[in-house]
């Protein structure tokens, strides 16, 4: 087999440049000495210290962090419960409908999710702001958690639970000392995913946010409309770092778990 051809190398370089060059530029310019975004004025980290002076940005970051932690945690609990219900009870009325509806929000356009949530909050007269954004984020990230946890439960050996029961452990305790620890990597991966999604959501937050609950993506977007500053580049670089590590940790956990279960099934068919 021919290992490299110029065509392959060219298409690879072009493709990856297209994907990552803009991001690379953003990271590079966050270390720019000059105030002008497009003119390189030497290396500096001053924007990273400068951004801490921008109270608006700090507030927005704080809101984002709180929304992320809260919504990811609640979404993980609900999503895990949904996944358990779907994989444990093979036959109940409307199971197909229910499992289809769990997946639907994954591909639902965010504008529609945001708009419908806005309509709901207006209809029930729920104040738009921090709690509305949190609820909205729970709604859409829950299904991601459910999908991740459910895929782990497919390979979960139910005889582990039977063994615990056989050894004298009642069902509720079995869930907490056996089931939960075994599927924990998938649950943590789900949480990471939910947190990351919440962190970088702009569209749904814009629909459901209110005064005093501006999230970081919203803040960045509104500032950029007035002109890109190197400060924003710095914030974005940090955000990028957070999101990337979140996704990496989640996929690492899932792969490790997969390897372990593969090893298990290979050794004991």
């Amino acid at each position: 087999m021919k290992r490299t051809s110029w065509f392959n190398i060219t298409s690879l370089v072009l493709g990856f440049s297209f994907l990552y060059l803009p991001i690379l530029l953003l990271v590079i310019f966050s270390f720019n000495e000059s105030r002008l975004v497009t003119v390189w004025g030497g290396f500096s980290t001053k924007w990273y210290s400068e951004m801490w002076q921008n109270q608006g940005l700090i507030d927005a970051a704080w809101v984002t962090l709180r929304v992320g932690l809260l919504s990811a945690t609640i979404a993980t609990v609900l999503g895990t419960m949904a996944a358990l219900a779907l994989s444990r009870h093979k036959r109940f009325a409307g199971r197909t409908l229910f499992s289809g509806m769990i997946y639907a929000p994954l591909v639902m356009p965010e504008v529609i999710t945001g708009l419908s949530l806005l309509l709901l909050f207006v209809a029930i007269d729920f104040a738009r702001g921090f709690w509305a954004v949190t609820l909205a984020h729970i709604t859409f990230s829950m299904c991601f958690v459910a999908v991740v946890v459910q895929s782990r439960l497919v390979t979960f050996d139910r005889s582990l639970e039977e063994a615990a029961s056989d050894l004298g452990c009642p069902p509720a305790k079995t869930f907490f000392v056996i089931t939960l620890p075994v599927i924990a990597p998938a649950i943590i991966a789900g949480w990471m995913l939910a947190f990351t999604l919440s962190l970088d959501d702009l569209v749904i937050a814009s629909f459901t946010s209110g005064p005093g609950a501006t999230t970081l993506p919203m803040k960045i977007y509104s500032q950029v409309r007035l002109g890109v500053t190197p400060e924003i580049n710095a914030v974005c670089t940090i955000l990028l770092g957070l999101v990337t590590s979140g996704v990496l940790i989640a996929s690492y956990l899932m792969r490790k778990e997969q390897q372990r279960s593969q090893f298990k099934s290979a050794a004991a068919p």
Partner: peptide
């Protein structure tokens, strides 16, 4: 008061 040894062994992996 009976205990079972499972075909898959069902050892608790954690």
């Amino acid at each position: 008061p009976v205990n079972m040894m499972f075909q898959s062994y069902a050892l608790f992996p954690h």
